[in-house]
Amino acid sequence: MPDTPGRGAPGGLAGAIACEWTKLWSVRAPWLCLLAGLAITGVFTYYYASISRINDDPIQPVGNAAASSAVLVQFAVVVLAMVTVTSEYSTGSVRASLLWVPRRHRVQTAKALVAAVVAFVAGTAFAAVGTAVAWPAFDGRASFEVGPSLRQVLAVGLYQASVAVLTVGVAFATRHPAGALSFLVTLLWALPSVLLGLGGPALAEVNDHLPHGSGDHFMRIGADAPHAPVTAFLIVAAWAVATHLIGLYVLRRRDA
């Protein structure tokens, strides 16, 4: 079913976004993902701060605990963004979506924007909660400044929004939850873990150009980062744009 000029949901992109917003909150999966992300944030940030206190680590910004939790919390965002695409392919309802909005780029853009907005709001909320939970657990082994802490909260939100856009692109490219999740777990967690585990400056540099490696430098404060925060975020954004374009290519080339 190719793109059909002159047809589409009422209101163009705005109408498509409204449709995707309604579909997202009509099922339980997003709520479960958000609750899981909140729970993971609370447990991980408390653990991170406690270990830092026990090991008598150097004093660091309290927001680093929330930034570190993103390595796990991002998968709550991954699942939330992924099901907006793969659930429709699993049930066949994607055909109805493409009949309602025949311009395929508009369907993908609407899903990516909705997922990104939810991920940004959730990410900032998770980071704020994580900062609050970590502060007493650090027990004096962390510093708190309003400006840097706010920047970290927003940085976590922006990173999670980028992960959501990246996920939507991968989901459209694979069209299957197992395939999408396998690729994303490898890209966002397994490959970085292997590269850092093997060690060496060359492998560390490769990791610094992967989504989470760059995102970690963007979200943290005080670490020895190879990139400026803006550069680190642009690397993450480039990954999100690349996967979005790949997903759009597959969406346009293959039948629903």
Rank of each mutant, 00 (worst) to 15 (best):
L80C: 12
M82N: 02
M82Q: 02
V85S: 06
V85Q: 02
E88D: 15
Y89L: 06
S90F: 11
T91I: 09
V94L: 09
R95H: 12
A96C: 06
A96Y: 13
A96F: 14
S97F: 06
L98N: 03
L99N: 12
R103G: 05
R104G: 05
R104C: 10
H105F: 12
R106F: 03
Q108E: 09
A110I: 03
K111T: 03
A112G: 08
L113G: 04
L113W: 03
V114L: 08
A115R: 01
V117S: 10
V118Q: 03
F120R: 10
V121P: 06
A122F: 08
G123V: 08
T124G: 15
T124K: 05
T124L: 06
T124H: 03
T124V: 15
F126G: 05
A127R: 05
A127N: 10
A128V: 15
A128T: 13
V129M: 10
V129P: 04
A132Y: 07
V133I: 13
V133N: 04
A134T: 08
A137L: 04
A137C: 12
D139K: 09
D139M: 06
A142L: 04
S143E: 14
S143P: 04
F144P: 06
F144D: 06
V146H: 12
V146S: 03
G147V: 10
G147K: 13
P148Q: 12
L150D: 08
L154H: 08
A155S: 12
A155C: 07
V156W: 02
L158D: 05
S162A: 14
S162G: 11
A164I: 00
A164S: 01
V165A: 01
V168Y: 00
V170G: 00
V170A: 03
F172H: 11
F172N: 02
F172Q: 04
T174C: 02
H176I: 04
P177S: 09
G179Y: 04
G179H: 01
G179W: 03
G179I: 04
A180P: 01
A180G: 08
S182G: 14
F183A: 09
L184V: 05
L184R: 01
V185I: 14
V185Q: 00
V185C: 01
T186K: 00
T186Q: 01
T186C: 12
T186Y: 08
L187N: 03
W189Y: 11
L191P: 00
L191G: 01
L191Q: 03
P192R: 04
S193Y: 13
V194G: 10
L195H: 10
L195W: 06
L195N: 06
L198S: 09
L198V: 15
G200Y: 13
L203S: 09
L203A: 14
A204F: 12
E205C: 09
E205Q: 15
H209L: 15
L210N: 07
P211Y: 00
H212R: 11
H212E: 12
G213E: 01
D216H: 12
H217T: 14
H217L: 15
H217D: 15
F218W: 13
F218T: 09
F218V: 11
F218L: 15
M219C: 15
I221N: 13
I221S: 13
